[in-house]
Computed example of a mutant assay.
Amino acid sequence: MGHPYAVAWVDHQTATILSFDAETAQTQHVRAHQHPTAQHASGVRAEHEFFAAVCAALAGDGQILVAAGHVASADFHHYVDKHQPQTAKRIAGYEIVDHPSEKQLLAQARSFFDRREHLAAPALHQPR
């Protein structure tokens, strides 16, 4: 079993995936394979293969935060919703970022999930 959380920074050529819990983090890198063909829409096919590899790398983890630029985020979101419904169910959010370091990415993800869990937790002191 993987970690309870993951953050994936995705563009159209590379992805950095950090799978983590409260104490540890594990890094994976996924790169698009370049195999140009004369086939119509081969760029779309290559993008779909890359996005599928990113989803496969996230398969063992729980909740996912996707961090990406505007275009990559929209493209990945569209792909996941259409082709990877099991992954789509585990994506807790999308945030727009521009080339963070792994340390910045992990800090952003920890903050995101801390806020999310804090908001979801029932209030300890309910008004009477």
Score class of each variant (00 low, 15 high):
1 M>K: 09
1 M>A: 14
2 G>Y: 00
2 G>L: 00
5 Y>F: 15
5 Y>K: 15
6 A>Q: 04
8 A>R: 03
9 W>R: 10
9 W>Q: 13
12 H>K: 04
13 Q>N: 13
15 A>Y: 05
15 A>L: 12
18 L>S: 03
18 L>V: 14
19 S>C: 01
21 D>I: 00
21 D>A: 03
23 E>N: 01
23 E>L: 02
24 T>W: 01
25 A>C: 11
26 Q>N: 04
27 T>K: 12
27 T>L: 12
27 T>Y: 00
29 H>Y: 11
32 A>M: 08
36 P>Y: 08
36 P>T: 12
38 A>T: 07
39 Q>T: 08
40 H>Q: 09
40 H>E: 10
41 A>T: 09
42 S>C: 06
43 G>M: 12
44 V>T: 15
45 R>W: 08
45 R>Y: 11
47 E>T: 08
48 H>P: 00
50 F>A: 11
50 F>W: 03
51 F>Y: 15
51 F>G: 05
53 A>N: 10
54 V>W: 01
55 C>S: 10
56 A>I: 06
56 A>R: 14
56 A>Y: 02
57 A>C: 05
59 A>E: 12
59 A>L: 04
60 G>L: 00
60 G>E: 06
61 D>S: 11
62 G>V: 03
62 G>N: 06
62 G>R: 04
63 Q>P: 05
64 I>W: 00
64 I>H: 01
65 L>W: 02
65 L>C: 04
66 V>S: 10
68 A>W: 03
68 A>K: 01
69 G>Q: 15
69 G>L: 15
69 G>I: 08
69 G>P: 01
69 G>K: 13
70 H>M: 11
71 V>T: 13
72 A>L: 03
73 S>Y: 02
74 A>M: 06
75 D>R: 13
75 D>M: 10
76 F>Y: 14
77 H>I: 08
78 H>C: 12
79 Y>I: 14
81 D>W: 06
81 D>Y: 08
81 D>V: 09
82 K>Y: 09
83 H>P: 00
83 H>E: 09
85 P>T: 07
85 P>M: 05
85 P>N: 04
86 Q>I: 07
86 Q>R: 06
88 A>W: 02
88 A>K: 10
88 A>I: 10
89 K>A: 08
90 R>W: 00
90 R>Q: 04
90 R>G: 06
91 I>M: 04
92 A>S: 13
93 G>Y: 08
93 G>Q: 09
94 Y>E: 14
95 E>L: 12
95 E>N: 07
98 D>F: 11
99 H>C: 11
101 S>D: 14
101 S>Y: 11
101 S>C: 14
102 E>G: 12
107 A>D: 15
107 A>F: 08
108 Q>L: 13
109 A>I: 02
110 R>W: 02
110 R>I: 06
112 F>W: 14
112 F>A: 09
112 F>L: 07
114 D>Q: 14
114 D>M: 14
115 R>I: 01
115 R>D: 14
117 E>W: 03
117 E>Q: 11
119 L>H: 08
119 L>D: 06
120 A>I: 01
120 A>C: 05
120 A>H: 05
122 P>L: 06
122 P>S: 07
124 L>Q: 13
125 H>L: 15
126 Q>T: 12
126 Q>D: 13
127 P>D: 03
127 P>K: 04
127 P>H: 04
128 R>F: 01
128 R>E: 08
128 R>K: 10
